[in-house]
Structures are given as C-alpha cells and as structure tokens.
Design a protein around this nucleic acid. Structure first.
Lengths: 161, 161
DNA sequence: TGTGAATATCTCGACATCAAGACACTTCGC
DNA sequence: GCGAAGTGTCTTGATGTCGAGATATTCACA
C-alpha cells in the first residue's frame, strides 16, 4: 500500500539523494494525517451544528466536570490560543447560548466561563460523532497494531510535556 | 512514560466512562505532535531566514527538479491553499528574490513560477536544517520502531490518497 | 469557424487570529 | 496599611487566509 508520502520521499530522493530522508517518513505523515483529521473533525461537527474551535472550548469545559466552569486564562492554556482570541470565542459562544460568563467570586479581576445545558448537550453530541468518525478511520487497523501505534506516538510526544 | 494525552483520556474517562476512547489515543497524539512539529519547523527555518509557508512553496518547486518551474495552480494543489493565497505568496517570494514569474510559453492564460538561484540555496539549506531538527526528535526511537511507526502511519494515511 | 464551457490567475472584501498594550484588581514586602 | 510588582482579562491594529467574483485564454464540438 502506497501513500502520498511515498511519492514525496521519492521526489526528494531524486533531487537530494545525499540526505537521509527517514524523518520525513514519520513526520510528514503525521502532519498530513493531522490535516486530514481536521477535515474529518469539521465534517463530524458540522452535522451537529458546531465548529471545531467551538468544540475545543466546550470540550475543555466539559472535561473539567461539574459545574463545568473554567477561567478564560485556563481555557486559553488548554486550547493554545491567545487571550484576544479567547475573548472573541467566548463572546461568540455566549451569543449562541452555549456558555455564559460569570464573575469569579474568589477574584474580582476574574471571570468564569460556564457551560450551559445547551452547551453540554452540544459538546456531548459532537464528541460522540467525533469518536465515531475517528473509529471509522481506524477500522482497518487491528487492535494490537492500534495499541502499538498509540504507544509509539506517546514516546514521541512525551518529551514535549 | 506518560504524556499529555494520558491526562486527556483520563479526564474524558471520568466524565464519559461510557465511551470507547481508543481513537483519542491515536488521533489526539497525531494532532498534538503536528502542532509541536510546526513549532520545531518554524525554529529550524528561522535560523535560515525563511518562514514555513515560504518553505512549502520553495520545496514544491525544488522537488519538481530542474528547471524548478511550476504553475501557480500546481503549487496551490501541492500546498493546499487557495488561489488568492498563492498569488499573495508568490508576490512576496518574488519581492524577496527567491522566485520569479514568467509567462507560460504553452498557455497564454498561464504563468510559471521559477526558483531563482537564491531560492534554491535557501530551500536546500532550510531542508537540511529541518531534517536535522526532525532527526533530533526521533533520536530516542530505535530504527526498528521508527520503521514500524512509519508503516503504521502509512496504513492510516493511504486511504486518503 | 464560432459558441459555450472549462481553465488559469488575480482582485477584493470579510474575518479569525496574533501580539502588544491598557486597565482593573490582587498579592507581597516593607 | 502602602506602594510596587504580578496577574487576569479585554481592546486595538496589523496581517494572512479564505471565498467569491472578474478577466483572459483555451478547449470541445457542432
């Protein structure tokens, strides 16, 4: 079975046969899979009427557990965006009624963002759709190999944490 | 060895113990690795005075082989951006002297984008730096496992091609 | 050869993001 | 307690990308 990266490596090999292209075999596939995955996510979420960035924020709140509240600062660290972006996102999610802003009782500088009942329903539905779509992509991979893959990826990712 | 995704899966497991989170173990790691890799790429390229988007375009031309010419249309398919974006990118690369635009002798609607000598030197240097940085990230992974990982990723990616 | 569909590129307006700075409140040391 | 440094959030301006539309040329076919 051949993929796009085989072509990529072949082309580079023709032009730069002096280089060891082994890293490309791994990292180029990771980048491309991430791009395809983004599109698959987008599709899965569209069916549930939410966008990827909305899911990122709602999912962080959902994972926090009841009462589903986090500060904007915490949210931006979870989702790796800047504060200006998070302000904008919370604005739009508030306008859609999926979250609400409340003053932080412990710190009068601060604000808490809380999932509404609709927000919780939306994120739960979207997450199930995402898992289903992802499970499809993995359907051809036997469980043993899937576990092996997860383990290898973990060993690459762990140094960053 | 534990990574960020172990935490993520643990949090979801607390909240949604009813769901099979196996896909997250694979795809969330792929997404996160892609993000970290982007940053590593950025760093490697910065040392060579070019940006990631510049590399994407220059590398497509470089891989095409002499005379290092491709049409804007071909470039946008290679790099997965829209035509408006490619026009803008070619403008900026032309301003930097890394590529030049020439009329397509075969099709008077068309244009060819050609790598200049400086462009070729820039992309070759940047690619070597990228390979070195990526090799570092793989340093702890024995060759056998690296090959195994590449193969597993290929089997996920191939269906998209 | 002429006509309409397809193709190739560029232009333009909208928009999400980032980065830097402003503002309010809190915390810590004296 | 008082002042300075730190923290948390929001505002603002710049920028890169997308998407739709405009223009020019080529292609298919009658």
């Amino acid at each position: 079975m051949r993929d796009e990266v085989d072509d990529l490596v072949e082309a580079w090999g023709r032009e730069r046969g002096d280089l060891d292209l082994a890293p490309v075999e791994v990292f180029s596939r990771i980048s491309r899979l991430a791009r395809h995955l983004d599109l698959a996510r987008r599709d899965a979420f569209t069916a549930h009427g939410i966008e990827s960035w909305e899911f990122d924020v709602l999912a962080a709140l959902r994972r926090a557990g009841t009462p589903y509240e986090l500060s904007p600062g915490r949210l931006l660290r979870e989702t790796l965006v800047t504060s200006g972006t998070m302000t904008n996102r919370v604005d739009r999610l508030t306008a859609r009624g999926l979250v609400e802003r409340l003053p932080d009782p412990k710190d009068r500088r601060g604000v808490l963002v809380r999932l509404t009942a609709e927000g919780k329903a939306a994120v739960d539905g979207a997450f199930e759709a995402l898992l289903a779509a992802e499970a499809d992509l993995l359907a051809d991979l036997p469980e043993k190999q899937r576990t092996q893959l997860a383990g290898l990826l973990r060993s690459l990712l762990a140094p960053f944490s």
